[in-house]
Design a protein around this nucleic acid. Structure first.
Lengths: 218, 218
DNA sequence: CGCGTACCGTACGGTACGGTACGCCATTCG
DNA sequence: CGAATGGCGTACCGTACCGTACGGTACGCG
């Protein structure tokens, strides 16, 4: 026994379980309402009893879904410790584009809606999980880049956390809250790249030191 | 007949109705869950029948509540059309402080949670109302100031909407999403003023033209 | 073959909640 | 003073949905 719960600990869910979680994500995106256990079972072609055996209860299912989605977002190259101005700009641009793509994606919007709705009550902090895998995860990946930029004499700041938060604000602006509140603003890839480029230039204008060479720009 | 609905149109709610709406706000803040019609009736010491007579249905009650809260936020001086650097900075600082106070307030957090949760489904766009009275209302009040600053030669930008969105991002950064997702970060008045000041300085560094005189700063 | 296991489909119980109906009191007006 | 109106409290109905129970099927294993 004790084969239950992709909830209890982070035993990676089996393929079948992943299919169930994808069904949950699909339902979330299609219609945030009627995210009912019956609907999930129907969509995933499994029985409710199985859902309860695997995930414990509704919150367990939602938590597992959030974790599952989070696990597939984390991809991305890591530290190139020597930076020149061009690569710094490029790295920041990459982060900005990735972040904008994530938060404008329908899955992210649906998931954040669920997590925010549940953040009001106690129990099962989906909000904490989303924050840890979203805002804070990107922060932990960006800050080393900023610090490398500072070490290379390209950036100037005292607190990397504060610098990152400014970067975050310049990139996201009002986009996420507008999407969460139901506005349908469609950013295509080109628009995202343009937005990201503007944010990076503004960030470098604020924190850049001398030679950041604002040339290649779309 | 036809005496219903502070919902249908924006006939200002009566004093008693305002008390009911305040009860709704209180429940929202205390516990986002159990925002049930029974709870509202109990809290407001009125009968459910009265609630339905006045507001039609649950969505009507929520909509009226959102409007009610929005109506008490709109205060604030308007245009002083001649600007020097100091007053421009001061005006922007005021906007930033006001905005931060609003979004960090428990009422705003609770209200945005409700609106976001409902934005997933169709019908009754609380999200639209919140956006119109929040993000867009502040935008319509800031943009004239920016344009006046440009007319006075203090600022330089092509698109006032784009400039405002940058300002919005510099002020809000990650604060709203973190609060919505359940993090409890407490900003006191001093912290808000400091944050607002930093945002204003950054904005002026990006869009200011020559003589903006960054002197008085906390 | 017989048994256990895992799972699907579905039916069922319990409950919470939106919305309605009704009895009663208080105030107001003819 | 009698009638009407407005609103409070409460009982009630229907439904949606969480969680569970149960029958049926496929598969592996002794």
């Amino acid at each position: 026994m004790m084969q239950a719960s992709a909830t209890a600990e982070q035993d990676a869910p089996s393929a079948r379980q992943q299919a169930v979680l994808d069904a949950v994500l699909g339902l979330m995106v299609e219609d945030g309402e009627q995210l009912t256990m019956d609907a999930v079972a129907r969509r995933a072609s499994c029985s409710k009893e199985t859902l309860y055996k695997w995930f414990g209860d509704r919150d367990g299912l939602l938590t597992a879904t959030v974790r599952w989605q989070a696990s597939r977002v984390h991809a991305g190259h890591d530290a190139a410790q020597v930076l020149d101005g061009a690569t710094l700009r490029e790295r920041l641009q990459d982060f900005a584009v990735t972040w904008l793509e994530v938060i404008t994606g329908p899955t992210s919007v649906a998931l954040n809606r669920i997590a925010i709705a549940h953040a009001g009550s106690r129990k099962s902090n989906l909000g904490g999980i989303v924050l840890a895998n979203g805002r804070f995860a990107i922060g932990e990946r960006v800050k080393p880049v900023l610090e490398a930029g500072r070490a290379a004499g390209l950036l100037s700041f005292a607190d990397s956390e504060a610098a990152f938060r400014t970067f975050f604000g310049l990139v996201g602006r009002d986009i996420q809250i507008r999407l969460l509140l139901g506005e349908t603003l469609d950013l295509d890839g080109a628009g995202i790249r343009r937005d990201a480029g503007r944010a990076v230039e503004q960030f470098l204008a604020l924190y850049g030191r001398a030679k950041t060479d604002p040339k290649h720009q779309a």
